[in-house]
Design a protein around this nucleic acid. Structure first.
Lengths: 193, 193
DNA sequence: CTAAAAACTGACCCATGGGTCAACAATTGA
DNA sequence: TCAATTGTTGACCCATGGGTCAGTTTTTAG
């Protein structure tokens, strides 16, 4: 049990290092060497804990996803009304620690690999499914059944679009503007009372 | 002048080949060799017409962008009312030849490089600026001045988000659904009359 | 205390791929 | 017709980086 602990610590360090290198270097530039150095280890150790580069970045993506998921769950637990649940989901996606150009760059790099890496595609699918499910559960209490799907797609697309924009043209797009945009959508598409 | 013609033809062939290889292989997998083979030429010729890999893909992105721009201009010319101009811009972005998973994959790969390639960033900036300008010119006639910027951002973000989703999870997202989503947004945010 | 298991390292292998170059083919213009 | 320009090729160079491995250190468990 001590054993597993060291290996778990190391694996987490390497996952994190991988994600951080990804932020600056992109997928092609994120070499095992750089990840190892960034984690303060040798290249050999990376391949000791992860079978290959793909697996490493697969786990990096998974961990980043878990962090987002926990942020959402955390806020959902505090929410009382359906409206609050809706806002909780949205606000979690724009928390400062997530909504940053560098984080977005890393995501973009991972997303660009999705079409060629089934494992990444699977993770992406899970993310979408959870998002949809969370949104629908809040929306069913706020809108006629026939509109829920469309609005859920609208919200996720808006979020993704704002994220993408942050990654491509960070100047001029702040967290506040992004959140204002989401509220603008809700105000018109899911009007209160 | 005959000379320039051959070189222009060759350059275009190579740009196109580059974009097409990008669709299937991603940036890392899109080697000069593959691009050359796909264009029916040798690797040497690619570097005869383009200084290096970056320049090749920069031109590939530029050409793809021009195609989209022309589609927009084409539809804008046919549009009579501000409302039609708005719809023209949106519909151009969802034309079948553009709104395809493989095309989206290529775009994603290019976008992922934007943070590390100033030339790509410049192109991206131009694209955004043109989009914004087009939208604002239509929106000023339809909305109070204070709302135009926000709605323009909303529309572009929605478009980008739907594109991203098409690239990540092509199953289940059709052109019709995407267009319906855009119309849903307009119906609620830019109501007619 | 000690042997086995796990953690870790650095040297090495090798395929890949970007980029160079010398030479050859074709086209062109006078 | 014939130089000069342009187009084109394939061989070559070389840095990079993923992955392997033999061997060393550290940890753990009995």
């Amino acid at each position: 049990m001590r054993l597993t602990r060291i290996s778990e610590i190391r694996r987490r360090e390497l996952r994190r290092a991988a994600f951080e290198v990804l932020q600056k270097e992109g997928m092609a530039g994120a070499t095992l060497e750089k990840v190892a150095t960034h984690a303060g280890a040798s290249k050999g150790i990376v391949l000791h804990y992860f079978a290959n580069k793909q697996e490493l970045f697969e786990h990096a993506m998974r961990e980043a996803n878990v962090a987002l998921k926990e942020a959402v769950v955390d806020r959902l637990n505090r929410a009382r009304t359906p409206r609050e649940r809706l806002e909780a989901i949205i606000e979690a996606n724009f928390e400062e620690r997530f909504f940053q150009p560098s984080v977005c760059h890393a995501w973009l790099s991972l997303c660009a690999e999705v079409p060629r890496e089934p494992q990444l595609a699977r993770i992406q699918k899970v993310i979408h499914a959870r998002m949809r499910s969370n949104l629908l559960s809040a929306l069913t209490d706020l809108l006629p059944a026939g509109e829920c799907e469309a609005v859920a797609l609208g919200i996720t697309s808006l979020i993704d679009g704002l994220w993408l924009r942050l990654g491509l043209q960070s100047e001029g797009l702040t967290r506040d503007i992004a959140l204002a945009q989401m509220r603008d959508y809700l105000a018109h598409r899911v009007p209160e009372a």
